[in-house]
Simulated assay, not measured.
Amino acid sequence: MKSCLIVDDSTIVRKVARRILEDIDYVVDEAEDGQEAFEKCRQEMPDAILLDWQMPIMGGLEFLKLLRGYVGGEKPRVVFCVTENDIGQIALARKAGADAYMMKPFDRDLLESMFVAQDEGADLVAG
């Protein structure tokens, strides 16, 4: 079974994403910020990470840079979630190592399509 770490400071977003990902057979863990997420990755690296952009303590971009510099940190496929279609944010995320991005709020079909495509090795952008 594939694993996914959902990193978002919103309890509701984590709960919704967890339900969707578990329905498509992912084992899911959660973190409220990048610092907590990095500690979890150090313990066990997930196959995928659904990552929020803006969070307290450590934001998504800072976490992503730290992750990609860590041994084994190149492994997870990272889907970055942004709240606005800001080309600058998206470019920074891609440069830091994000594999794909999608807009929030997302729905079941969009999230499922990102992770089903991920399983098939596609490089997606969703808005």
Rank of each mutant, 00 (worst) to 15 (best):
Q43R: 14
P76L: 04
A17S: 11
K15Q: 11
F63S: 02
R19C: 00
K2C: 03
R68M: 10
D8I: 09
K2Y: 11
D9R: 14
L51F: 04
L67P: 01
D8Y: 11
L61M: 02
L50Q: 05
A37P: 01
K2Q: 06
L64C: 01
I12A: 14
W53A: 12
E39S: 04
I90T: 03
L51W: 07
Y70W: 04
R77H: 15
D29V: 10
K95A: 12
A48F: 13
K15H: 10
S10A: 12
G73M: 08
M45C: 06
T83W: 08
Q54I: 05
D47S: 12
E44F: 00
E44Y: 00
T11A: 14
I12T: 12
A93G: 09
R19V: 08
L21A: 01
A93W: 06
R19A: 10
V7W: 08
K2F: 06
G69F: 04
A91I: 15
I24G: 09
M58S: 06
L67R: 05
P76N: 12
E44K: 09
V78S: 08
G97T: 08
D33G: 03
Q35L: 13
E32H: 07
Q54Y: 04
D47M: 03
E62G: 05
D52R: 12
R94Y: 11
K40Y: 04
E36I: 12
V79D: 02
K95L: 13
E39M: 03
I90W: 07
R19K: 08
I12H: 04
L51A: 09
I57V: 15
V78F: 05
E32R: 13
A31L: 05
L50Y: 03
L92C: 11
C41S: 08
D9C: 02
V27Y: 02
M55I: 04
K2S: 15
I49D: 02
K95I: 15
E74N: 11
L61E: 01
D8R: 07
E30C: 07
I20N: 15
M55A: 01
I6V: 08
D23I: 12
I87Q: 11
V7H: 10
F80L: 14
Y70Q: 07
G59D: 15
V78D: 02
L21G: 00
V16C: 01
L61V: 00
V78K: 11
N85M: 05
S3T: 14
V71S: 15
I12Q: 06
A48Q: 07
I20C: 03
R19Q: 14
I20D: 01
A31R: 10
Y70K: 03
E84L: 03
G59H: 02
E32I: 09
L67D: 03
E62I: 07
E22D: 06
V71L: 15
V78T: 06
A91V: 15
L21R: 06
A31T: 03
G72R: 14
